Amino acid sequence: MTTSVRWKTLLPRAAIAVCVTALFLYYGAGFKDEKLQSIAGVIAGVAGTLLGFLITAVALLTAVMDRTLIANMRKTGHYQRLVEDTFTTCTLLLGVVVASIFSLFFESERLHCAFAILVLLCMLGLLYVFEAGRRFSVVIKALS
């Protein structure tokens, strides 16, 4: 039985995100609603900015398709994986933006549940952003 590469990368990251969410649920019960809504607004801004940067990075990468490095990456399948993982990261960041906007409309107990979902998506998205950033830095350094 084979395990997909996506599952091998997703499962440890999901475990870390679940642990951080559990810590929030355990220690975050004392946060006031206003503070959580303020944090959600900041998270929405940061996630939106990161989403924009990733979309720009993919656009820049497609602009240099004529380079030898990109041609070799396409032949070996690394380019396809880079783009797929970047779109996965973009999807997670979009989920973070949506979850943070929804959490602005809740109060009390529902706010804590919505914020727990936001923390889970945010941690998962950040872990994917770190990997995407590392991959893009390798490609950009090789293009220089």
Rank of each mutant, 00 (worst) to 15 (best):
A44D: 03
A63H: 05
T49Q: 09
R67W: 00
V83S: 07
T49S: 15
G77S: 13
I55L: 15
T3F: 11
T21Q: 08
R81D: 13
C90S: 08
Q80C: 01
M73D: 11
M1G: 14
V18H: 00
A14W: 05
T9P: 00
T21S: 11
T21I: 03
D85C: 01
T88L: 09
V20Q: 01
G41N: 10
A71T: 11
I43T: 13
T89Q: 10
S4F: 06
R13T: 05
A40I: 08
L54E: 07
T9N: 06
T56C: 07
R81F: 04
A47M: 06
A17N: 04
A71K: 14
T89I: 03
G52T: 12
H78F: 01
P12G: 03
A15L: 15
G30C: 09
R6W: 11
N72R: 10
L25I: 09
T2W: 12
L36M: 13
G45I: 03
L82G: 02
Y27S: 12
F87D: 00
T62N: 11
C90H: 02
T89R: 02
G48N: 04
T91K: 02
G30S: 14
A57F: 08
A29Y: 12
K75L: 11
K32C: 04
I43F: 06
H78G: 03
L54C: 05
L92M: 10
L50D: 04
S4E: 11
Y27G: 06
G45F: 07
M73K: 05
L61K: 00
G48R: 01
L61G: 02
L23N: 04
L51N: 03
A44Y: 02
A57D: 11
K75N: 08
I39G: 00
Y27W: 14
T91S: 11
T88F: 05
L61F: 04
Y27Q: 14
A14Q: 05
L23M: 15
K35M: 10
A14S: 15
L10R: 01
R67Q: 08
T62M: 07
N72Y: 03
Q37E: 13
G30H: 14
L92V: 08
T62K: 06
T91V: 10
C90A: 14
H78D: 15
D66F: 06
Q80P: 03
L54F: 13
T86K: 03
G48C: 07
Y26P: 02
V5S: 11
T56N: 15
Y27R: 14
G30V: 13
G48D: 09
N72P: 01
L93T: 00
D33M: 08
V64T: 12
T2F: 09
G52H: 00
M65Q: 13
R6F: 13
A71G: 09
A63D: 15
A40S: 15
Q37L: 10
N72V: 01
A44M: 12
G30M: 13
D85Y: 06
T76N: 15
F24N: 08
C90E: 08
E34H: 08
F31V: 07
M73R: 06
I16Y: 04
G30K: 14
L82I: 10
A63Y: 07
K8R: 15
Q37T: 11
D33W: 05
M73F: 10
L61S: 02
Y26H: 15
